[in-house]
Design a binder for these strands. Structure first.
Length: 277
DNA sequence: CATATGTCCTGAGAGC
DNA sequence: TGCTCTCAGGACATAT
């Protein structure tokens, strides 16, 4: 489930494509239901073939490849991967970009479950169509004042609010549990009841956890799906304190036992002893 | 408007 | 062993 650190790792891993010209964009034959690609691959190929990749950027949990005044926007969602290495299999290879010149270079958008999407947007339309209404400030660049203000404006549980991409872009289910644990905040705490001090702590911890996870190239969970662009697993899963550790002793206080609860139909993990309501 | 719930999809793992 | 069932959760659509 690529979140900000995994998507950031993907972006850094495909930097090799910057400066290279696109030979063709194609959709490999695939027996599964095709993923959402707009406009058609044929149209995307017409726009991008021959164009030089200007840069790669990240917007929340999306990867943007900029070329020919457009951005090809890859949204991995649950099981998508953007990689320069051969994907785990060809059956789930959803989009492929071949580059001109030497050495041979191909980019794969591989997605086992096929929930991911691909779209091509003109640079001028990105702000309006992607950012406005869909994404809040990025979790790594939001200021504390805005963060604090946004939390004060809602009574939702903090864990649920952290997953709202309109409030804050980049945090997903795994890192939300981790950062609340480190901050010693109960996941069901209503946002507008957090003290300014707690919000400040969460803000600092959020950035530390995300940067630390980037340094470890993200988390590869037991299904082994996520890989960096060179096909190696991340290592932040070894740093997880609570995620997917239900019934284990709390590594922070060693008094509590990690609990799993469900919030907004998603698993939340926390220690009832050191994350009091 | 704010918030809550349902849905998409495939494969891993549990249980029988 | 092989079948069926449940679950994983990002983001959007729809409902309250």
């Amino acid at each position: 489930m690529p979140e900000l650190p995994e998507v950031e790792t993907m972006c850094r891993g495909i930097e090799w494509i910057v400066g290279r010209r696109i030979a063709r964009v194609s959709k490999p034959a695939c027996e599964y239901r095709p993923i959402s690609i707009t406009p058609s691959v044929t149209t995307i190929n017409k726009k991008l073939a021959g164009a030089k990749v200007e840069r790669v950027s990240r917007l929340g949990k999306r990867v943007l490849i900029h070329a020919a005044d457009h951005a090809l926007i890859l949204q991995p969602k649950m099981t998508g991967m953007v990689s320069l290495e051969d994907p785990p299999d060809l059956d789930h290879n959803r989009l492929q970009i071949d580059f001109k010149g030497w050495p041979t270079l191909q980019l794969f958008f591989w997605d086992r479950r096929g929930l991911g999407t691909v779209e091509l947007q003109h640079e001028d339309a990105i702000e309006e169509r992607i950012v406005n209404g869909k994404l809040g400030p990025d979790a790594l660049t939001i200021t504390f004042d805005i963060f604090s203000e946004k939390l004060s404006a809602t009574s939702r549980a903090i864990k649920v609010a952290l997953l709202d991409q309109k409030l804050l872009a980049g945090v997903g289910n795994l890192y939300a549990s981790e950062m609340l644990h480190v901050s010693k905040i109960h996941p069901e705490k209503p946002c507008n009841k957090l003290t300014k001090l707690k919000k400040r702590l969460l803000y600092e911890v959020m950035q530390r956890v995300l940067l630390d996870a980037i340094a470890h190239e993200g988390s590869t969970l037991s299904d082994g799906t996520y890989r960096n662009a060179l096909n190696n697993p991340g290592s932040y899963q070894n740093q997880h304190l609570v995620y997917d550790r239900a019934n284990e002793p709390c590594p922070s206080c060693s008094l509590g036992t990690i609990r799993r609860i469900v919030q907004a139909q998603r698993s939340t993990f926390y220690c009832p002893k050191c994350q009091k309501k």
